[in-house]
Design a protein around this nucleic acid. Structure first.
Length: 420
RNA sequence: GGGGAGGUGGCUGAGUGGUCGAAAGCACCCGCCUGCUAAGCGGGUAGGGGGUGUGAAACUCCCUCGAGGGUUCGAAUCCCUCCCUUCCCGCCA
């Protein structure tokens, strides 16, 4: 969230950000409620201060008349405070719905058509034959099963079988190994269900409840990404500056309702209710967050490069970047069979937007007052689409799939999928 | 799931109605002392919010002892609900 103080001082910045993000910010209502809240609070505190003073006097004198007066003051103070609290609750709720501002470098635009490719790696491979889609190949090889997924859980669920399941596991292992051993991330195994407070911390709530699966009759939600538990790992904490940046990597299945995506990507292993993802999360200082954000993006890119997949990096425009992000890059891997790019990673920097909600702070130096940390995250990478890109890129004319060099150590001797 | 104990500052831990935002110890910081180090001596060190107001200050008030409610002129202390930790029993991958 944005702090009240920031909104008071920069109402126009907040208004403009809301407009350009397509998420209008109720700045005027907030300022009105803020003034209202402070007026009532001030009154309540004035009463309370006098009451505290007289109460000490009563402890000495035991004067009955004074006691009666204090009783009335207590009543008046309580009333005033409850009004202030009610206004503050409304104000807080509104604050949670104000979108983050964005960085100067973010392209201004409304839709994905306004996103900007900032770099590319490799080129579209020429396979020398008409490439098939991953779902075509996957079903033919018996390594992907959409029909059974649908029968067991519904549409947008699937099974991976045999070497397909193994390939997914190999990818997870490979990614975790690279990030932990070479990029210095600490691996976390985390809860896959989290409470409302945690979801609010990462800004998935209250705005995006319709994107989440909720456990009936419990305050628990299925995570849409490991970002949620991992970012909240340090919630309500004051960190030491010399601990920063904290770097975590976590593999987790992720669940999304995909509300509003009806009809999109219904074919294939692309937009599933459940998918696997290796997630990178950093907690850092305001001074280093933009640099750490770029580095995290490169850490995610390294996986694609090692896998030999052609991809591009796209800077999301204001209208397409989302409510909470300060700046965001998407990594899109080329899928020859689908003849399009697939978003395999989304890397974002939030500044203190999440940290404020989750109350993650750090102390810049000895005796210095705490400040909100900055949070960053990105997929490193999302499994199904990465798997798709691999299957489609490494397919042979006979329908078998060559295992990428870097995954061979994880495939238990399998070098060619479908060879049997 | 049943029963017991407990949740206090960075940590340990005292405090059972006002003199408590909180003893003491540890840790840390500043200063003194000292061939050096250690020890010793003095001082300091929670968070959030409001008001006033500056370049960050300074001053002042309010709130916070797991969370929320209640009793009371007054609650860390009494009552209720919830959450969490821990121990014993039961169950169990």
């Amino acid at each position: 969230m944005l702090s009240l103080d920031f909104i008071r001082k920069n109402p126009d910045v907040v208004r403009r950000a809301g407009q350009l993000k397509g998420e209008p910010a109720p700045v005027d209502e907030i300022l009105r409620l803020d003034a209202d809240w402070r007026a009532h609070l001030h009154k309540a505190e004035t009463i309370k201060a006098e009451q505290n003073e007289l109460s000490k006097q009563f402890a000495r004198t035991r004067d009955e008349a004074l006691k009666e007066r204090l009783r009335q003051m207590a009543e008046a103070g309580k009333t005033e405070l409850s009004v202030a609290d009610a206004v503050k609750r409304e104000l807080d709720d509104m604050l949670l719905r104000v979108p983050n501002i964005f960085d100067e470098s973010v392209p201004i635009g409304e839709t994905e058509a306004d996103n900007v490719v900032i770099r590319e790696w490799g080129s579209k491979p020429d396979l020398g034959f008409p490439p098939r889609t991953h779902y075509d190949l996957g079903e033919a090889l018996g390594i992907m099963d959409f029909e059974r997924g649908a029968r067991v859980a519904g549409s947008r669920f699937a099974f991976l079988a045999g070497e397909g399941a193994r390939l997914e596991r190999a990818l997870v292992q490979f990614m975790l190994d690279v990030h932990t051993r070479e990029h210095g991330y600490v691996e976390l195994w985390s809860p896959l269900l989290v409470n409302t407070a945690a979801m609010t911390g990462t800004a998935n709530l209250p705005k995006f409840a319709d994107q989440l699966f909720k456990v009936e009759e419990r305050d628990l939600w299925l995570i849409p990404t490991a970002e949620v538990p991992v970012t909240n790992f340090h919630r309500e904490q004051i960190l030491d500056a010399d601990q920063l940046p904290l770097k975590y990597v976590s593999y987790a299945p992720s669940w999304r309702t995909e509300a509003g995506a009806a009809g999109k990507d219904t074919r294939g292993f692309i937009r599933m209710h459940q998918f696997s993802k290796v997630e990178l999360v950093k907690v850092t200082t305001p001074e280093t967050s933009m640099e750490e954000f770029e580095k995290l993006t490169h850490d995610a890119e390294a996986i694609l490069q090692r896998l030999g997949l052609h991809y591009n990096v796209m800077a999301m425009c204001t209208g397409d970047m989302g409510f909470a992000q300060y700046k965001k890059y998407d990594l899109n891997a080329w899928a020859p069979g689908l003849d399009r790019y697939l978003e395999v990673s989304s890397c974002s920097v939030f500044n203190d937007f999440q940290a404020m909600r989750a109350n993650i702070r750090y102390r810049p130096g000895r005796g210095a007052p705490p400040r909100f940390a900055h949070t960053i995250n990105g997929s490193g990478l999302a499994l199904p689409r990465t798997l798709d890109a691999i299957v489609e890129t490494y397919q042979r004319s006979d329908g078998m799939i060559t295992v990428p060099e870097v995954l061979k150590p994880y495939m238990g001797g399998v070098e060619l999928i479908g060879a049997r």
